[in-house]
Design a protein around this nucleic acid. Sequence first.
DNA 1: CAAGAATTATGAACCC
DNA 2: GGGTTCATAATTCTTG
Lengths: 99, 99, 99, 99
Amino acid sequence: MSDTEDEAAASRKRQADAPDADVGGIAVDRLRSIIERIERLEEERKALADDIKDIFSEAKSAGFDVKVVRQIIRIRKQEPAEVEEQETLLDLYRRALGM
Amino acid sequence: MSDTEDEAAASRKRQADAPDADVGGIAVDRLRSIIERIERLEEERKALADDIKDIFSEAKSAGFDVKVVRQIIRIRKQEPAEVEEQETLLDLYRRALGM
Amino acid sequence: MSDTEDEAAASRKRQADAPDADVGGIAVDRLRSIIERIERLEEERKALADDIKDIFSEAKSAGFDVKVVRQIIRIRKQEPAEVEEQETLLDLYRRALGM
Amino acid sequence: MSDTEDEAAASRKRQADAPDADVGGIAVDRLRSIIERIERLEEERKALADDIKDIFSEAKSAGFDVKVVRQIIRIRKQEPAEVEEQETLLDLYRRALGM
DNA sequence: CAAGAATTATGAACCC
DNA sequence: GGGTTCATAATTCTTG
C-alpha cells in the first residue's frame, strides 16, 4: 500500500539524514503526521455519522417523524445546560414587551 | 411611515406615564426600540441575501460553476498580499507532501 | 504576459465587435456583471451588519443582556412560523419518553 | 451501569405488559432505543471532534498555517480529477477577469 | 490570544 | 433529477 511505502520511505529518510527532514523549511514528517492523524479521525467520524444515519432510517421505517426525533434529541442535550438565570431574564424581557 | 408612527406612540406614552416607563426594572421603550430597529435591519439584510441568491441562480443558468464563482469573490475580497501568501504556503505544503 | 493580452483582446472585442466577448469560452462581461453585482450587494449587507452591531453595543451600554436580547429576537422570528402539527408530535413523543 | 439497568427495566416491562408498550400510539421502547443509540454515537462523534481540534492546535503551535492545512486535507479528500477541473476553471475565470 | 458564540458557506437529503 | 430545505463544517467576531 502507498501509505506503508511512504511511511517506510520517510522512516529511511529520518534514519539517514535527520531527526526531521525539512523541505523548503517545512517539517515534513510533522506535517504528514498531523494530516494523517486528522484524516484517520475524520474517517471514524464519518463511520459514526453513517451509523447515525442508519438509525434515523430505521426510525423513519418504524413510522416516527425524523425531524421531531431530532428535535427531541436536541432538547435532551440542551435542557440540562440551560441556565435558570437566563430563563429569568428572558421572562423579564418578554413580560416587558408584552410577549 | 410605520417607524414614525411607532415613535409617536412611544412618545405619547412617555409623556403620559413617565419619561421612560419601567416594567420590572426594564426600560421598556428603550428595549422595544432596540429590538425593532434590529428587526428592521435584519429584514433588509434578508432581502439582500435573497437578491444575492437570485444572482447565483442566474450564474448557474448561464453555465458558470457557482462554487468557483464563490471562490473568485472570496479571493477578490482578500488583500492581494494575503492571496499570494496563502497560495505560496499551499504550494509549499503540497510539495512537502509530494502532492 | 497572457493575462494582459487577454484583457486587451477582450476590451477590443467588446468595443469593436460584440455585445459580449468570450475569453477562453467564457462570457466575460456576463461573469463580470454577476460578480460585481454580488459584491455590491454584499457590501450593503456588510453595512447593515455593522449597523446591527452598533445597536447591540448600544443595548449593552444601556445595561441589557445582549445574549437574551438576541434570544428575544429569535423567538419573535420563529414563533409565527411554528407549525402546530409538529408541536403536537413533539409533545406526544416527550410524553412517551416521560420528559 | 445505568444503561444496563434501564434496559433491564424496559425488558421487564415488555414481558409484563406487552410486546412493546404503546403510549398514545407510540412504540415507547422502540423510540427510546432509537434515541439512546443515537445519543451514544453522537457522544463518540463529539469526542473525535475534540481530538481533531487538539491536533489542529498542535499544528498551530508547530507553526503551521491551520487554514492551509485544512485546505490540504480538503484537496486530498477530493478526486484528483475534481481538483484538476476546479483549478482549471478557477484559472479560466481569473484570466477572464484579468486577475 | 485563546475560547466560545454567532454567522456564513458548503454539503446532504428529501420531496415534487 | 432538480430545487429547496435541513445539517454540518468553517470562518469570523467577541469576550475573558
